[in-house]
Amino acid sequence: MTVEEAVAEADARIRRETRFAHTEHLVVVHGDRTVAAHAYGERALHEPGDVYSVTKSVLSTLIGCAVHDDRLHLDATVAALLGGAVPEAFREVSVRHLLTMTGGTDPSGPYDIDAVMALPAGWTNTLLTAPRLARPGTRFRYDNGAAHLLAACLQRALGEEDLEAYAVRRLFAPLGITRRHWPRDPEGVPYGFGHLRLAPPDLVALARLWLAAGVAPEGHRLFSAAYAAEATRAHTAGGPPEGVGYGYLWWVTELAGRPAYFAGGYAGQHVVVVPSLDLITVTTGAEAALRPGWRPALDLVPGIVAAAAGAAGSEVGKPL
């Protein structure tokens, strides 16, 4: 099966099967070629939408930029960055621990991000009161609050420069991203955990940047190749919600036998990168259209990867 045939099959299933009915977009880029760019609902391809937890991988990208700019160090602690009376549970937690979600504190109950978002103020201070469940660096727990604390740490490390302004200067503008919306908490910190609004082509641009190990389209390096490699390798075996390994706010796995990594968000938001095949897939979904038994269009991506791998294999041994 060719890549085009595999993509056509995925497209047909999205249109036919009710479990994929919430899917808004399917974009497939193979090398320099856009194989497909489908919009299924009312949202046009270039219209920004909520990418949910894909925001975390955008934040990881900005952390890489700040490290490259020598404005942040991965072993800096939350206490050193946020200062003040950071509780004992967070004294040893570092930027690297937050990136890998191994901070060891409790992300449930009053520290669950939905509970924190209901507060009129003090989100960061509330998250800092979460009790310790494990020593930092020893156990993965998916933690939206940790991602928001990471955003607060980066905001503090940037000093006078606002985090979103830094994102525009160092990431969005170099990638040609002009339409976006990034909500902020009551203290003005952009959400680290979710709800950034971007369009599918913007997600493709983000994926291309990672495929290029931090080099933007105009040739400027935004973050180091070493950071790209560390961010996209599994530091732990991970766990729910995706059930695969975890890097620096990127999920790490294999698809059709090929190493891959992806950004994932609720309701079917996935940005998948398969470096060995120069392959990117972007799928999005509408939360309001979710039905019982729904599945993310990510389920269809392994078939596309397998076809691309087969095509790559067929090139081996061809006469010159």
Rank of each mutant, 00 (worst) to 15 (best):
A207G: 15
K56R: 14
G313N: 11
D106F: 07
V35D: 00
W250L: 03
P107C: 12
A37S: 13
V168D: 08
C153W: 00
G122C: 10
V7K: 03
L255E: 08
R258P: 00
L320K: 07
A205V: 02
A36T: 08
G265W: 03
A36R: 14
R96Y: 05
V86W: 08
K318Y: 10
A228R: 00
G264R: 03
L127G: 03
W182H: 11
R295F: 08
G137K: 03
G194D: 12
A121T: 14
S108A: 15
R180E: 07
H270R: 15
G49P: 03
Y166A: 11
L206C: 12
P186K: 13
V51M: 14
R179S: 14
T2C: 10
G264M: 02
I63L: 15
V244E: 09
V3K: 00
V58F: 07
G245F: 06
G310H: 03
V3E: 01
V215C: 06
L249Y: 09
G310V: 00
A44H: 07
L45G: 05
R184A: 11
R233K: 13
A80D: 14
A297G: 15
V273E: 01
T126N: 06
L298G: 08
A151V: 04
A205R: 01
K56P: 08
D299Y: 08
W250H: 02
K318N: 08
P183K: 13
P201Q: 09
E218K: 10
P201K: 05
P240G: 06
T284Q: 06
Y266N: 14
R258W: 01
V93C: 04
L175C: 06
H73M: 10
A151L: 07
G41S: 10
A157W: 01
A237I: 02
D143S: 14
R13H: 11
G192W: 04
L154E: 00
G83L: 11
A115V: 11
A37I: 07
R221W: 12
R33M: 05
D32W: 01
G293H: 11
E218F: 05
R208Y: 04
A85C: 04
A44W: 02
A213Q: 15
P302D: 11
A37T: 05
Y40H: 12
E218Y: 04
F20S: 09
H195Y: 15
I280R: 02
R15L: 15
L163C: 08
E242K: 09
T283G: 12
R291Y: 03
P259C: 09
F90K: 03
Y191M: 14
C65F: 03
M1V: 13
D32M: 03
R135P: 05
A311S: 15
V215K: 05
A76I: 00
V116C: 13
L81W: 02
L62R: 02
V78K: 00
A37G: 09
T77L: 08
G238M: 00
Y191H: 15
W294L: 06
S276I: 04
H235E: 10
I14K: 04
M117R: 14
A6N: 10
T55P: 06
L163E: 02
H195L: 14
P259R: 11
A260R: 00
L175F: 06
A267I: 09
D11N: 14
L198E: 04
I63F: 10
R179D: 15
D202N: 12
G84Q: 09
A205W: 00
